[in-house]
Amino acid sequence: MNKNFKLIIEYDGTHFFGWQKQKDKKTVQGEIEKALTRILNQKVKISGSGRTDAGVHAFGQVANFYADTNILPQKLKKGINSLIKDPVVIRECCVVEDKFHARYNAVSKEYRYVILNREDPCVIGRLYQWHIRSPLDLKAMKQCCQIILGKLDFKSFESTGSPRSSSIREVFFSDINPLEGDRIEFKICASGFLKYMVRNLMGTIVLAGLNKISVNEFVEILEARDRTKAGATAPAHGLFLKKVNYS
């Protein structure tokens, strides 16, 4: 009997060429499909909630796939986790309605970005945070976070090649706060994201934190709808897909 399985996946993106399957390159989607094909003895294609770029991590990527099997979801989860030797873990596996689609049914996504803000770099955890030596103005950065709330055109923070019909997205939540150990965490939840949107936002918000641009100039960059006006793309390794939300 053909069933629709939903997966919640955690992975370290350091040594992957992103989520999406690519020929002759190691990707998260590709490794999971290999494991499923071996377990189920049938060709399996999984659909993710969206792409994550090379080096980006995830706590809660969501995917679904159809398979003709009587294997229980819990056993399937254990089987995938035992076969994949890379830093990928299936956190949940369950059978869902046939009409469920990980990408098309998603109503919002949550990302977090971590910065280490101190003079000295670190060894432990260096692959999961962006090291910035100069002190950051948290107040200015928080003001920028408030400016991007609501339904806005984020063309200034979109990299070329974004698969979209519109650059308008709705941001439901955006804030930045200190963590223990000289770290700062940026959190954002939106209806969807353009290519490199979170990393481009982070790179520009950091400019405000370094007092290289004012908060008013950040507004001008947003309104310009011109990627060349915004800051550089923040490194991939500080970014995490936290959660995908469904109605």
Rank of each mutant, 00 (worst) to 15 (best):
V219A: 01
E31K: 14
L127F: 15
D68G: 11
R164N: 13
V123K: 08
H101N: 13
L36H: 08
K78P: 00
A236G: 13
I80Q: 03
R103T: 04
H131D: 10
G209Y: 00
A102L: 00
R225K: 15
P121F: 04
S162E: 08
T69S: 06
Y111Q: 04
P73R: 07
E217D: 11
R126Q: 06
Y128P: 10
K243C: 01
V44Y: 06
D120C: 13
R225S: 10
D12E: 10
A63E: 05
H131R: 11
R51D: 06
T160R: 15
Q61I: 09
V107M: 05
R227L: 05
K21C: 10
G150V: 11
F186Q: 02
N117G: 04
F154P: 01
N4S: 03
V62W: 07
I39W: 12
E31N: 15
F240W: 15
C144Q: 08
R227P: 05
F157R: 05
F218R: 00
I221R: 00
T233D: 11
P121H: 05
E220R: 13
V96R: 11
K75Y: 00
V219I: 15
L116K: 00
K3D: 06
L83V: 07
N245S: 10
I124A: 12
Y104W: 11
R126N: 10
K45C: 05
T14V: 14
R199H: 06
G192H: 02
V89D: 10
L210I: 02
S166R: 11
N2L: 15
G150E: 04
I221M: 07
I188H: 02
G18D: 11
A236L: 12
K45Y: 13
